[in-house]
Computed example of a mutant assay.
Amino acid sequence: MIKFRYSPKDNRFYLRFHYSKTFFSIAKSIPKGFFHSVDNDNAWSYPNDPNIIKQVLNAFAVHDIRILPREIPKQCEILGDFFKATRERNFSFRTTKTYYSHIFQLLVFTEKLPVNVKTSDLDKYLDHLVTDRGVKAASVRSARQAFIFYFREVRQQFTQLKFPRMMVGSKLPEVLSAEETKSIFNALPNRKHKMLLLISYSSGLRVSEVIHLKITDIDLKRNMIRVGQGKGKKDRYTILATSLVEELKEYLKVREYNLLLRQSYNEVRANPWLFPGSGNRPLHIRTAEAIFTNAAKKANIGKKVSFHSLRHAFATHLLELGTDLRMIQTLLGHASVRTTQIYTKVARSRLENIVSPLDRISAAKENIKLLPENKN
């Protein structure tokens, strides 16, 4: 086995292998290499230079070299083809980051370059995720998608790569009632924080969508909100509650005043974000989630909820009010109505109108008792 390891003592990479005339010849041909022979420990060392390291990796890739990916300089671009493919396909930052994480962790697990990975390595790694790390089915499915994309579509290394269908448990979201939702809003004295949650519920926005809203996305004349490049990189329009318009106008005045306390007038005018964070950036997603968590705690909400629960509540409450499912799908930006159909399972009004067959039998018994007895 060929091993390539970094030594922080002298800031050099060491290439070790059982003696082979072929390997020795290749190692010797790479510039700036130095041969070490101490106590039967033979190795070639190379400076911590990305160009040299890249030459070593390329030369020994066909011989199944073993590496520690975290040691390899980023300039070597061992996953350069992956990033090129995601740019060409215009993948979102989140998808790229998720796929990269799965693929990189696979390389860490196998200690291999992508070209040396085998389908058996994929199976072992996925099994490791389930049995050793106990990751959720959704994460395993995400890893599978990343491997299919990279090894089948990009590298065409495994052209027939498929995985057996996973049985994934279906969990219904815990839905906030109208009263619980209102109590969360009332628990927030800060106008900016309250408006953040109000707009998310009013329009059914994801947390990433609401923090990236710009002032120009709000159409106060039509009571509409434009969601730019939402999930799946799709633009859409959703509703803005009429009852929120005046309060939103007041918030915009307070927003400008607060920004002027720490920025110049020109800087405030150049800040496009409806919910500004530090500098000229939008509010951080973790800050938004913390705002909701603290508000739910103050409101004594016993259910297991998160910021996304406001979006669940928006859809469920609309359905309970009789809004067409297809229209809710459009407002939420779901690609398929099947995703939206989950709310039919939690909408209270749909369930309340269903009469249990036991109640019908019980009612029938009561009617029988009311009939006069037959004396004959």
Rank of each mutant, 00 (worst) to 15 (best):
I215F: 02
R281I: 03
D41I: 14
N280V: 00
W44G: 03
D219N: 13
T216Y: 05
P69F: 07
P357R: 02
R12C: 04
A43F: 06
T86W: 00
S208Q: 09
S142G: 09
L196Y: 07
R255Y: 08
R206P: 05
F185Q: 05
N258H: 13
V108E: 15
G333C: 05
F292H: 03
L274Q: 07
N48K: 09
K9C: 02
V62H: 14
V56G: 00
Q229G: 06
Y14N: 10
Q105R: 15
T316Q: 07
E179V: 09
R165H: 12
F109C: 07
E180K: 07
F83K: 09
T339C: 03
A295Y: 08
E320W: 06
H284S: 13
F17Q: 02
A296I: 01
S29I: 08
N186D: 14
R191A: 12
N40G: 12
P282S: 01
L197R: 02
L274I: 13
K112M: 02
Q105D: 08
A270I: 00
V56M: 09
L310Y: 01
G204P: 06
R144S: 01
P372F: 14
L244M: 06
S306M: 05
I78Y: 03
Q55Y: 01
N11Q: 11
L260S: 13
F292M: 06
N186R: 12
F60A: 08
S25C: 05
D217R: 06
S45C: 11
V337H: 03
H334M: 07
Y46K: 00
I30T: 05
R269E: 12
N280K: 09
K297H: 10
R360S: 14
P282H: 11
N280Y: 13
K345H: 13
F185E: 01
H193K: 05
R87C: 04
I218L: 12
L106P: 06
F4L: 00
L252N: 03
S278L: 12
I184G: 02
A288M: 08
D219K: 04
G134W: 11
P282T: 01
L197Q: 04
E247Y: 10
T216I: 10
T316L: 07
R338P: 00
V207K: 06
R133G: 09
V227H: 08
S139H: 07
S243G: 07
E71V: 10
R155H: 00
P357W: 08
F91L: 15
K233L: 13
E366T: 14
Q105C: 06
I199E: 05
H212L: 11
A296W: 08
A27P: 03
V210T: 12
T293G: 04
N42L: 10
R360F: 09
